[in-house]
């Protein structure tokens, strides 16, 4: 296959050979894989983008609690704080990104419609970072699409080389992957080179290695929702570093291999089973009891 890639190295080579950005290779890859025209693929991604945008806009307005009532309403609070930026330390882009990420994740927790990007657990990060920064550069919808394609290509490499399932690799596989993807997407939208995109990704992904997936009662709510918000900060930070010329000492492909190894050796109790970590704190056990789950031990 002409546009086949499984690693960052292969992808960068392809971008060099054809002198196009990562997003373009992602489109060509998908077109070749599925036999569909480029325009069909672009339209499919547009649909994805529109659903993401809808989730952001609905989530930001809603202050409904989740089904179990342990989350909800924070997106609105942070979005309101944008009106009084002087009191905040972050800038407008990062705070808005957090608000958007929370909005999507809260929608997810109340069983609203979202786009899993790459999974539902980390679905807030990519829309948070990309939509907020697109508003900042006043970027058109087309540029946003580039960010999404680039992010998907990075996610694909992680899925090929490691996993994007928290049940297999812990939170690094879900929120970690999402942050790595968002960092690359943002870097491409800002005009970074493919190498800079992967530097940003590697820097971001490295800080998520080994993160436990230990949500209370196994619900994708605490700490997942806020991790999505903080993830936006990391993605933006990593992208800034890459754009300033900072390189990742460990190349992206090796970071993915490390993630795979860590995922394999991680104990089962912190892989989305609600048997360890935050899930078995007194607070965690209270939520478990409310749900009628068996309590194994308490910290």
């Amino acid at each position: 296959m002409k546009y086949h890639f499984q690693t960052a190295e292969e992808l960068i080579k392809l971008t060099k050979r054809h002198n196009v950005p990562i997003s373009e290779i992602a489109k060509l890859y998908e077109s070749q894989r599925s036999g569909n025209a480029i325009s069909t693929i672009r339209n499919k991604m547009k649909l994805t983008r529109d659903f993401m945008y809808k989730a952001v806009k609905t989530g930001i307005k809603s202050n409904k609690k989740s089904i179990m009532g342990i989350s909800g309403g924070d997106a609105q609070k942070i979005y309101e704080s944008l009106k009084n930026l002087k009191r905040m330390m972050g800038n407008k882009v990062t705070i808005r990104a957090m608000a958007y990420a929370l909005a999507v994740s809260e929608q997810n927790a109340r069983m609203g419609r979202i786009v899993a990007f790459p999974t539902a657990g980390g679905a807030g990060v990519v829309p948070g970072v990309l939509f907020s920064s697109a508003e900042h550069f006043k970027a058109g919808k087309r540029k946003l699409l580039r960010g999404l394609f680039c992010a998907s290509a990075v996610g694909l490499i992680i899925a090929e080389g490691s996993t994007i399932s928290a049940a297999k690799g812990g939170c690094q596989a879900e929120v970690g992957s999402a942050v790595a993807m968002a960092a690359a997407g943002l870097t491409e939208m800002r005009g970074g080179t493919p190498e800079q995109c992967f530097d940003a990704s590697a820097i971001a992904f490295k800080s998520y290695l080994g993160l436990a997936c230990d949500p209370l009662a196994g619900l994708v709510e605490v700490p997942c929702i806020k991790r999505n918000a903080i993830g936006c900060m990391n993605a933006i930070g990593a992208s800034d570093m890459a754009m300033a010329g900072v390189q990742s000492y460990v190349p992206f492909d090796e970071v993915v291999r490390a993630a795979r190894d860590i995922g394999r050796t991680m104990p089962r109790t912190i892989k989305e089973t609600a048997l360890g970590g935050l899930a078995i704190t007194p607070t965690g056990n209270r939520v478990k009891k409310k749900l009628g789950l068996r309590i194994t031990r308490e910290l």
């Binding site: 994805t48 929608q107 899993a116």
Partner: peptide, 16 residues
């Protein structure tokens, strides 16, 4: 597929 990563459009809370 690229759309295994960018998607599915779904009802929460967990893709898996």
């Amino acid at each position: 597929s690229i759309f295994d990563i960018a998607g599915p459009i779904m009802v929460g809370p967990s893709s898996s």
